[in-house]
Amino acid sequence: MGKKISFILNGVKREVYVEPNELLLNVLREKMGLTGTKYGCGIGECGACTVLLNGNPVLSCLTLAMDVDGKELVTIEGLAQEELQIIQRTFLEEGAVQCGFCTPGIIIMAKSLLKNKTNPTEEEIREYLKGNLCRCTGYVNIVKSIKRAAGKACKKC
């Protein structure tokens, strides 16, 4: 049964019972039904499990669920509400998605990058995405779509 924690998940206050050794990633996927966030390596090297905790990108596979008590969390499911966000649209337009496994983590990172920097250079984008592995695309179209999203200078990004 564990202990009750409460936090804001994608804008909505949620409560859930968790055990001390439960990881945020597994609680999201198995108890909240949000399977957009992926389990890749489990040791902090691939970035597939990236979520925004109080606005900062962190790895949900290395975060205890207990640790998000009282905090604010955004997952890939929290981005698109009525319609897709600019960054999600440019990923589709540029063909930056192949198998799609790394995509949620990379979109979360792109959102965080564009919040801090409205017009990042290619080098800055690649440096920022260093912790997100993609085994299909070779990153070229991913970088392109982030540049393009930045170019659209949309306040919604």
């Binding site: 055990e19 001390p20 050794n21 439960e22 990881l23 990633l25 597994n26 389990y39 390596c41 489990g42 040791i43 596979c61 205890l64 207990m66």
Partner: peptide, 11 residues
């Protein structure tokens, strides 16, 4: 299996 924390502890 790095998906879970296979140890029990008090937090």
């Amino acid at each position: 299996n790095t998906r879970i924390l296979p140890v029990k502890f008090q937090y």
